[in-house]
Amino acid sequence: MSDTPQAPSALESSLDGNTTVMGGTNSVSPMTAVGRAPRQRTSWRERFEITLLSGPAILVFLAFVIAPVVAAFYYGFYRWKGFGPPTDFIGLHNYKVILTDPEFHRAVLHNFEILALSLLIQGPLAILLALLLNRKMRGRSVIRVLVFVPWVVSEVIAGTGLGLMLPVNGAINALLTNMHIFGDVKIQWLGPHMALWTLMAILTWKYLGFAIILLMAGLQNIPEELYEAASIDGASYWQQQRRITLPLLGPTIRIWAFLSIIGALQLFDLPWIVWGEFNVDRDGISTMATYMAHYGPRTGLYGYGNAVAVVLFIISMIVAVLYQRLVLSRDVDGAVTDGRKKR
């Protein structure tokens, strides 16, 4: 929102020392427009238009997203090996096993570790790089394109390459040996001591581009005049970033954090491909999704796998709702759960 009344107030609150990046309450106005729809009653004609315009999307969405979700709930109540239709109804048994399995507990813990580290590592890095890439300087467009490369490359391709680079006898250790760093010590990048940090490095490498691109979009929303005014008042570059940019980026950061949280909870491909299904648990980077795949399709336990999918879905929902209530509510009105409108 670049309307002028907003910015000074945000600036003021940041001057009050309230510069928290996450969960700050000092940001610009909520996404007001959601509640701004003009017509007061729904006429038959509007109903026709609504149906015509949103009908196809809703149909496709119900058929290919909601129906499989409902089916997953259904299969989760069965002991079912994927052969023939499910017949062996076992009620909540699968859920009992899941919730009492220490391996699943570890997977959930890892998910939340990854979630927290993703926010803490990628957030500040992305802000710094977005600021850097937003500076007017020569060669910027080339740098920008290159920084986004990992994000555009598919997980399967990235995993293939990283799988060759990271084992003890892989390219990274060979390179370190060639350069006489660490002497002859071969670092077990994938082992239990390093795995979480290696994974964080991989995730940062892969997804930082997306954070940067969102933040750069957010930066475009900050009116130039604010910086010009601050410059006249003698504020340094860093002062300007701290007092103007950070507070005004609040909504963007919160949206990025939301997407990052969802991504962390549903993380699957990279641990699965780079470490492999037998190693994720030992090396401390299993996730709910790798647990699901390992004990679902890979061992023929389709009922159980679907029950895990349901648990994963519910945990994602709870976190999303909490986040929306506590942090995001001012930005995305009702995006996740309720239709309560704000004005």
């Binding site: 084992p167 003890v168 006898n169 071969k186 077990q188 994938l190 492999g276 190693n279």
Partner: peptide, 25 residues
């Protein structure tokens, strides 16, 4: 066994154990 044996695949990549055997590693 070789170091880091449980992070090395048997097949499916040149750096897997079959490749290591093929190159006398």
């Amino acid at each position: 066994f070789e170091a880091d044996a449980f992070n090395i695949a048997a097949q499916g990549a040149a750096s897997a154990t079959a490749g290591l055997l093929a190159n006398h590693k």
